[in-house]
């Protein structure tokens, strides 16, 4: 009985967090503090949480600890730096008259386990130099690489995945 009590309380706190998030987004979108707008916002946010709360990742509330937020603040500038490097790389390849590309699909292995971490890893890989995630199957990712440097699993893993995985493991696990 104890664990059920605990889990319902946890579920209620998750719902409350989602409701506050939705209400904050409503406030940002309307950008007025009018009583009628606020009442409509409460009704809409409650409706969204009531009907669509299964779509939120359930353990998202557990991620808001100071240590994880610190690593998130480390991760964001590094990610933006990688995005800029990727864009300059594409700019060079597109404007070069000979099109210096050597494409191919390689397979890499990741040590991350949760779905949220894998999603972040796949999106980060897509936005960084020369790589595009094609599919995820279990712990393997298939990656389209515009300039293949290593065809085997270990070499490609070291070049593509490792630079993000160390930080993402600290954030999500």
């Amino acid at each position: 009985m104890e664990s059920i009590e605990k889990s319902t309380g946890f579920k209620f706190r998750v719902r409350l967090f989602e409701f506050l998030l939705m209400f904050l987004i409503w406030l940002a979108l309307t950008w007025t503090i009018d009583p009628l707008t606020l009442i409509v916002g409460v009704i809409v946010a409650a409706g969204v949480v009531l009907f669509l709360s299964d779509l939120f990742p359930p353990n998202m509330v557990l991620l808001f600890t100071p240590r994880r937020l610190f690593w998130l603040l480390v991760y964001i500038p590094y990610f933006l730096y990688c995005v800029f490097k990727a864009n300059l790389d594409v700019l060079y390849r597109v404007l070069h008259p000979d099109l210096p590309i050597n494409p191919g699909i390689v397979k890499v292995r990741t040590a991350l386990t949760t779905d949220l971490a894998k999603t972040f890893l796949a999106n980060s890989i897509t936005l960084t130099p020369g790589t595009l995630t094609v599919d995820i199957e279990g712990e393997y990712l298939y990656i389209h690489w515009i300039n293949v440097l290593a065809k085997d699993i270990e070499g490609a893993t070291i070049i593509i995945v490792n630079k993000f995985e160390n930080i993402l493991r600290r954030i999500f696990e």
Binding site: P103, G104, I105, K107, V134, Y142, V148
Partner: peptide, 11 residues
């Protein structure tokens, strides 16, 4: 993939 591709592990 393009005919000049290096490898296609997915296929």
């Amino acid at each position: 993939l393009w005919k000049g591709s290096a490898c296609d592990k997915y296929l």
